[in-house]
Amino acid sequence: MPEIAMGALSQNGTVLLARRSSTRRTHPDLWSLPGGHVEDGEDAETAMRRELMEEIGVTPQRWQFAGKVVLEGPLEASVTFHVYRIDQWHGYPRLVDDEHTELRWFSLDAIEGKAELAPPQLGEMLANLVSRETGKPA
């Protein structure tokens, strides 16, 4: 089962999302967290740190495991997404490669009402992350 590690950078009641490029094979043009595949011999935490540097040019400094989303399908289509909440990092988030076309900070309202997420199951987890930070119920 493929595993994906993702980083949810959060600050001031918002979370950073990246719009997937229209050329992506899966979920083109949808909003997602920066991240990518866990490679052989790598754990999800290491993959998350590597992917954030490769995709948005930041090095996570303080994070915690936020949870995972498992998408069930035929055996070859099942995927596990490991999500980490990052509240401290070095560098300024920017597009480094061509996997994404835009970065944007989303509030709780924007996550709940406007963001077309990939995978869609991330919505509840992200809303909970932002609401814990702001004290506003999700």
Rank of each mutant, 00 (worst) to 15 (best):
L16V: 04
S107F: 10
V79L: 12
L71T: 07
L108G: 03
D98K: 08
P2D: 03
P74I: 01
D97N: 14
E3W: 07
E72I: 04
V79S: 06
R49C: 15
L95F: 13
D40P: 10
P28F: 10
V83R: 03
R24P: 06
Y92P: 00
E124V: 08
D43A: 01
R24G: 11
P74A: 05
G91M: 02
L71S: 11
L126F: 13
D43I: 00
E112T: 00
R20I: 01
S21R: 05
V58L: 03
E39F: 15
D40G: 04
L75K: 10
P120A: 10
M48W: 14
L33Y: 08
P60R: 00
F81I: 01
V69K: 04
D40C: 05
M48N: 07
G57S: 04
M125T: 05
L17H: 02
V38P: 13
L33H: 03
R20C: 00
R62M: 13
E42V: 02
E99K: 09
T23L: 14
K136E: 10
D43C: 11
S107A: 05
V58I: 11
Q121G: 01
T46R: 09
R85T: 00
E39M: 14
R62F: 15
A115W: 11
R94M: 14
M1S: 14
R94K: 12
L71N: 11
P74R: 05
L16Y: 12
A66G: 14
E54G: 00
S10W: 13
D43R: 02
T134G: 06
H90A: 14
T26P: 02
F106A: 02
P2N: 02
A115Y: 09
W31N: 04
Q121A: 15
S10A: 03
V38E: 07
R104C: 07
G135V: 02
R132M: 11
S10I: 11
A8H: 06
F106R: 01
L16H: 10
E45L: 13
V130Y: 12
G91D: 05
R24F: 02
H100I: 00
L71I: 15
E42P: 07
F81Y: 15
L108A: 10
L9S: 05
G123T: 01
P120M: 01
I86D: 08
T59Y: 10
E45S: 13
A138G: 07
A47E: 03
G36W: 14
E99D: 15
L103Q: 01
